[in-house]
Each structure stands twice: as C-alpha cells, then as structure tokens.
Write a protein that binds this DNA or RNA. Structure first.
Lengths: 151, 151
DNA sequence: ACCTGAACACCGTTCAAGT
DNA sequence: ACCTGAACACCGTTCAAGT
C-alpha cells in the first residue's frame, strides 16, 4: 500500500497510533475476580507491562492514547477499577490509576532505552529482562502500600 | 543563526535536547534540610515536573538520560536520597526513586500529549496546568504513603 | 469504497565555502 | 573557531485520478 492510502481510514498519524495501541492492549486477559484487588492489580499491571515491553515504542503509543482518553481500553479501565478496590478513594481513583500507568510506561520505556543504548554503545550493559521486571514490581508494591494505607 | 550552525556544537538533535534538559534541571534549587524528607521529596518532585513541563519532548529526553545513568544530574540524585530518607529501605531505594521519576515524566508527557492533541483536534479540551499539577500531587501522595508505611 | 502516484511543506543533517 | 547557504533524504499529508 502507498503511505497516502492510510489517510482514507484515519484523519492523521495520531489517530492511527491510537488504534494500534488498542490492538496491543486488547490481547490482555481480564483480571481474575476471585482474588484480592491489590493482588489482581499487580497481576494486571505486570501483564500490561509484559505485552508492551515486547513492542518497540509501545510506551509512547499507549501513553498518547491514554493521555487523550484514559478509559478508551478495557485493560486500563480494569486497572482504574482495581486501584479503587485496592483502597483509593473514589475522588482519587483516576489520579492513582494514572500513577500506575506512568510506572508501567516508564518502566517499559526505560528498559527499551537501555536496550537501544546498549546496541549503540557496546560499553553499556544490555538490560536483564527479569531484573527489570523485578524492579518494576518493587515500585508497584510501594504504590499498593500507599493505596491500602489510604482507606 | 542558520539551523545547520548548531551542528558545529552538537552531534545531533538528541544531544542538544539533553543539554537543554541539563541546563533546566541545574536551576532547580537543592531541597531544604530543615524539613521532613517526605515534604522535601514532594517539593522537589513538583519543582522538577514544573521545569520539564515547559520544555517540549522533555520527558523523552530526560527519560533516556535517566535510563542510561540515573545519577547523572543533581536533582535526580537528591530525589533518590529523599526517597530513602522518606522511608524506602536501602535495598529498594533506586527502584522507589525510579517510580517517582516515572510519575514525573509520565505526568509531563501526558500533559504535553493532551496539549498537542488539543491543537490538532479543536474538539478536545486544552489541558489546565494547575489541574494537571494537582492530579500529579495526588499520585505523589500515594507514593509517599507507600514509602512511609515501609519503614 | 478503496487505492495509486505524484506532489507539497517541513525538518534533521551534511558540507563546502566563507569570515 | 564559528557561521552561512545550499543541498539531501525523509516523512506527514493532500488530492486528483484510477479501479
């Protein structure tokens, strides 16, 4: 297809990227209902992070879509609901959910930045995926503590 | 000056933006020593966010620099120290500091994304800077609670 | 309805030539 | 040492013309 053909389907590049982000997030399974909210929240956040970590530039794309419409995708709506059930007051639900999303996207972007930097400059160490995931979960646990503390 | 003249001073645009970010971060005052760490942490995070929000692409640029070398700039070193003093165990200090940085950069990127989207699509609301700052502080307070809870 | 092909403006970058 | 001016490749977007 010629590049210009895309503009029959979307108004601009941003709109295209939003649809790409939707497709990426759609393959994430719904969180379990028979678990504590804080536990389900951690599981969902880890799942979202895993999916995005595999896709170059995923953080930018999803970040743009989320910034424009935070409730556009089901996994991120689930995330906001679980944040509330895990202890965030209703009035602070969206702000606390944004914190979780920022941590996910920041973690993905940092890992991809380190990976890119390592291929450009061979002196730099390539990131270890399991260590990155573990560091992410440490930050997550700080958030979860902050949420449960607030009810 | 002609645009090409810049390339006598820097290798590429990314390097230029890194220097811009460094200059901006450098003018952030050191946190006060006569205040509780959690309070100083909030003040510093807010100051960093304010400065970066004014610079296009600041989140990407600082994110890349931080991913490669988290301790490169003084304000971000101060941030990691205050995170520790606010309650993060030494073993989790860097991971908790990364959480704060992710929240700062995510908040800045989201605000700039929304601003850009509003100029492209006039139906979308332009972001309100003070509301954005307030939402950021709600997330920050969740982090601070999670930190103080962990000691 | 959907696509091609050619065009346009814009931008990051290079480089020979100037002072 | 530092800058200009012209060039280049690349990319987002438009649009008339095709099927």
């Amino acid at each position: 297809m010629a590049p210009g053909a895309l503009y029959w389907h979307v108004a601009n590049k941003q709109e295209l990227l939003v649809e790409v982000a939707d497709v990426l997030l759609a393959e994430i399974p719904a969180p379990p209902v028979d678990r504590p909210a804080s536990e389900a929240l951690v599981g969902l956040a880890v799942a979202v992070r895993e999916v995005l970590a595999a896709v170059p530039d995923a953080a930018d794309v999803v970040g743009l879509a989320y910034a424009v419409d935070p409730g556009a995708t089901r996994p991120l709506r689930d995330l906001a609901r679980l944040v509330h059930e895990a202890g965030a007051p209703a009035a602070e639900r969206d702000e606390a959910a944004a914190l979780v999303v920022h941590h996910i996207l920041g973690s993905v972007a940092a890992q991809q930045d380190r990976s890119l930097a390592a291929t450009i400059d061979p002196d730099l160490p390539a990131p270890d995926a399991t260590a990155e995931a573990k560091a992410f979960e440490v930050g997550l646990s700080v958030i979860v503590r902050g949420l449960t503390r607030s009810r």
